[in-house]
Nucleic acid binder design. Structure first.
Length: 572
RNA sequence: GGCGGUGUAGCUCAGUUGGUUAGAGCAGCGGAAUCAUAAUCCGCGUGUCCGGGGUUCGAGUCCCUGCACCGCCA
């Protein structure tokens, strides 16, 4: 049995993500996971919250809660919303887990043994009032260049001049407003990524089948300017994986933690360990996915992420994996996405612009969102969400093409033959032609799904739905019924079987709807229709069903205008 | 400032290694049908493929350049 390991970029803990974040990683990852499972693969689909770092500490502080408690709560919130979108993670873990701590410390040790860690002393701004070192962007003051009074420590937003925090006039902490800032010397561990440049370059060059978006970003970082830079992997914080521990190959790192970008990707692996522990399995259960010396050789590992995450997945994390000199399973394919814009601008978490995951679910069921987002996934370039487009796509594709198809055939059957598959007649030329056409269309659909071409997959699926309406329109059982009820019965039987086919093929995109059809038609299975002809004969005369409620209500102009207004401004 | 991306029908987007009259969905127009959520099906597109140069027998597709928008980096 083929085995597929799938990970989605980890959503950061400090709040609810917007639809742009969702469509860039978790949702397409789920689509692919569902598809691979349907095709019979053994799948392990992992995701987790990314919980460490300064933003989490500050968010917790604002909420007036200990950071651990804050993260635990937000993790539950995110998990619940993920479930709301039907994201089928085998495990939704936490980067703050014990497993991740152990693994992060282990890998840091291995990297040190490989000579890839060095200790560097540098100066950073310390806020006495806040009791912490401040990242550059949390320091503001007057720009020495243009006089703008809210220039950040890394850059002036007004004149765009790049700054050093110590350049600022009258600097203060944006966390507390404190002005008692001082520069202090502090030591940090650096990961010598530059030493691995050759190995990384070779590895990336070998990935000729990757999307250009992925490889162009990777190569740019690898080759531009002075090439790949070494990066600090520790920070002076309390919330995170401790850098100093028993057996650490360095000293003097007390009170420091690993920088979030270092431990977050390691959570992909640790998440597997969390999953195994939760299932009551032993280590071998997750190691067969993650260690090539323990059975992961035949695993195909696919990662999903937005383009902003590509450097970490093509360079930093691989440095950790390769540099450890241990046989970790490396990623086989990286599917990356561009950005989804919102109505002429960007989605903005800070300004609350756009639709956030919880809000989306509060106004419509998940399948509406899944369908629109996936059929408009920003694959080749940034794409745009507008309410008009959302309304027309959803109404047309889901309500009219698919929903109405189910409605018209089941209701016609009920009125003429009752709620059971009618007997009589045999499939003829027209049906054989339809089967041949659908067999071809399903193969086309599968080829796009195999290639993880999300939009093309959606288009192909839609074409399959359309084929049912074309058939029904030309077979016209409502006409043939008058002269030849047996013929009409056979045509209706085909129509009902088409619903069964659609329920199976559509499940990766719109799982709830597939479930409804499964129940209404009393299908014995939602297995993939490897044999289209057989699938279209699987509902036999006498099989009873129930006419389902309309699958999709249409979005009215009033709703659309309402939402347009509601989500334009600031998140309430 | 450096780098990268994008710019194709009213809208959202496809267009593989350059090759016949540039495509899909939606919207619009005309028709058929009336089983169905006025839902479906059929037919209809002369679009300076952002502008300007160039390479080529031939360019949306390669090169140079200008413009616009968007990112990333320093």
């Amino acid at each position: 049995m083929a085995r597929t390991l799938i990970t989605s970029a980890l959503p950061y803990i400090n709040g609810i993500k917007h639809l742009g974040n969702l469509v860039g990683s978790q949702l397409p990852a789920d689509l692919y996971a569902r598809y691979r499972r349907a095709r019979g693969d053994e799948v392990l689909f992992l995701c987790a919250t990314d919980e460490h770092g300064t933003p989490a500490e500050i968010a917790a502080q604002k909420a007036g809660k200990p950071v651990a408690e804050y993260c635990a709560e937000l993790h539950e919130v995110q998990a619940e919303i993920a479930a709301g979108f039907r994201l089928s993670f085998d495990h939704f873990g936490r980067s703050s887990s014990e497993q991740n701590k152990i693994l992060t410390q282990h890998l840091a040790t291995k990297l040190a043994e490989s000579g890839l860690i060095e200790v560097i002393e540098e100066t950073q701004v310390y806020s006495v009032t806040d009791g912490r070192f401040l990242p550059d962007r949390y320091i503001e003051g007057t720009c020495p260049n243009c006089g703008y009074d809210s220039a950040r420590g890394d850059q002036c937003d007004n004149c765009t001049k790049q700054l050093d925090p110590t350049d600022l006039i009258n600097p203060h902490s944006t966390i507390s407003g404190a002005t008692d800032l001082e520069t202090r010397a502090t030591k940090h561990l650096y990961l010598k990524q530059s030493n691995m440049r050759g190995a990384l370059s070779e590895w990336i060059e070998s990935k000729t089948d990757w999307p250009v978006l992925t490889t162009s970003i990777a190569k740019k970082w690898l080759n531009d300017g002075d090439g790949l830079q070494d990066r600090g992997i520790t920070r002076d914080l309390s919330w995170g994986v401790p850098v100093q521990y028993d057996g650490a190959p360095w000293t003097g790192m007390d009170g420091k933690v690993f920088y979030v970008w270092f431990d977050a990707p390691i959570e992909y692996i640790a998440c597997g360990a969390e999953w195994a522990a939760k299932q009551g399995f032993d280590d071998a259960a997750w190691e067969r996915w993650w260690r090539t010396d323990k059975g992961a050789d035949d695993v195909r590992y696919v990662q999903f992420m937005g383009k902003d995450n590509v450097p970490f997945h093509t360079l930093s994390f691989p440095v950790t994996m390769l540099g450890s000199n241990e046989p970790w399973k490396m990623v086989d394919y990286i599917k990356s996405f561009n950005y989804l814009n919102y109505d002429g601008g960007q989605f903005s978490t800070s300004r609350g612009r756009g639709v956030f995951m919880d809000q989306a679910l509060s106004i419509l069921p998940p399948d509406y969102w899944r369908w629109w987002l996936l059929s408009h996934a920003p694959e080749s370039s940034d794409s745009e969400f507008t309410w008009e487009n959302f309304q027309s796509s959803v109404n047309k594709d889901l309500a009219d093409v698919l929903g109405n198809f189910v409605s018209r055939i089941t209701k016609f059957c009920r009125s003429k033959f009752g709620e059971e598959v009618p007997a009589g007649g045999d499939y003829g030329d027209q049906e054989r032609a339809l089967i041949a056409d659908l067999t071809e269309k399903v193969a086309d659909y599968q080829s796009h799904m195999d290639a993880i071409d999300v939009r093309k997959g959606a288009n192909a699926l839609r074409a399959i739905w359309v084929a049912g309406n074309e058939y029904l329109q030309s077979a016209a059982p409502w006409s043939t019924f008058k002269e030849d009820p047996e013929l009409a019965a056979m045509q209706v039987r085909m129509g009902l079987n088409l619903i069964g086919l659609y329920a199976r093929l559509s499940s990766p995109f719109i799982p709830d709807t597939s479930g409804k059809l499964h129940t209404a038609l009393a299908l014995d299975t939602l297995d993939w229709p490897e044999d289209v002809a057989a699938c279209l004969s699987s509902l036999t005369p006498g099989h009873t069903f129930v006419v389902p409620d309309n699958l999709f209500a249409k979005i009215s102009d009033e709703d659309r205008e309402d939402w347009q207004e509601k989500f334009a401004g600031t998140r309430s």
